[in-house]
Design a protein around this nucleic acid. Structure first.
Lengths: 174, 174
DNA sequence: CGGGCCAACATGAAACGGCATATTTTCCCG
DNA sequence: CGGGAAAATATGCCGTTTCATGTTGGCCCG
């Protein structure tokens, strides 16, 4: 029974309470109640540390994302350039160049798609597989550190809510 | 009563259920359970549209963030370069350059701090104030559109959880 | 089967961001 | 008070991202 999102006043702490002239909290700053800002700040706060560790190993964020995306693939499959761009939150031309460097560095290989000759399929090289294996260990370790800083129930709640937010936000688009 | 985050098993849906050999969902992809990825994807999914509208007006994301940050200031106050950098999730040298452009475009003004001559204080020009006023309208309108796509209760829940995540993640650092 | 339309990928010029470092001012401690 | 350490900005160089566009291949329909 999905009760449709009815009006429901919803103000959590707005509408000046009958407080006298006590200048307590003159109302939260715009940025502290703005969903886009909260998401960006949270993502940045949590990712900063790990991204620093990545670059300490000489791996950029886009490269890490490509490696992680390619590492979970079925078998002989390969992702396309555009698919990787979307998965890694980058534009397609940017992805092309990221892949140029990764190919030059021996991390990935491009091969033609036999069904559709416009498409380029990407797979990890052995070197790419080895690199991503290490990085996945580091990523899981870092995530464990982060989770340890927060009540487990809240983290699970956030994960679940984020998944739904993403699903609903992505679907109705385009 | 801050009950310290005790162990509490917490597995929400792990530990292979006694399902036979039915290869249903072979386990979620790494990226679908990785907190950093969920936050980045959610932030990107929600912000993408608005960022596009910004650039349609010729305003870059960092510029918008600076404007929004400066718009909520007490009175004759001004933020510092480093303060703005942190608030806008940028490095200080990058912020210096963003401010160079904004000053050139007549959006902000730099003035010296009388108490500490190392510090530069920034304020909005009338043109900056006018610009940010428009953008704030657009931002609130866009946020309303986003909120309309999701159950209000969930959005409030996410906001609250993100605020706590940010607070706990930022405090213990440095 | 031929034309127009759309999708996938690549490329080139220009803007931008990041890192390391230089400079100036303040702070602190003996 | 002198001198070293740390903070706040600025600068230069370089790698990366972006935007607009080009090119090739597939698709659909008359």
């Amino acid at each position: 029974m999905p009760a449709p999102p009815r009006p429901q006043p919803l103000r959590s702490a707005a509408l000046s309470p009958p407080q006298p002239a006590a200048a307590a909290k003159p109302a939260r700053r715009f940025v502290d109640d703005y969903l886009l800002a909260l998401l960006a700040r949270a993502s940045h706060a949590v990712s900063e540390e790990f991204h620093a560790r990545l670059r300490a190993r000489g791996v950029g964020v886009p490269v890490w994302r490509v490696l992680a995306t390619l590492s979970g693939l079925p078998k002989g499959q390969g992702e396309t350039v555009t698919g990787l761009a979307r998965a890694c939150l980058l534009q397609q031309p940017t992805m092309t160049k990221v892949l140029d460097r990764m190919e030059r560095d021996g991390l990935v290989r491009r091969h033609p798609d036999l069904q559709d000759r416009r498409v380029v399929r990407l797979t990890l090289t052995p070197r790419g597989e080895a690199t991503v294996a290490e990085l996945l260990v580091a990523a899981r370790a870092h995530e464990a550190e982060v989770l340890a800083r927060h009540p487990p129930a809240e983290v699970e709640a956030i994960k679940a809510l984020l998944r739904e937010l993403i699903a609903r936000q992505d679907r109705p688009r385009r």
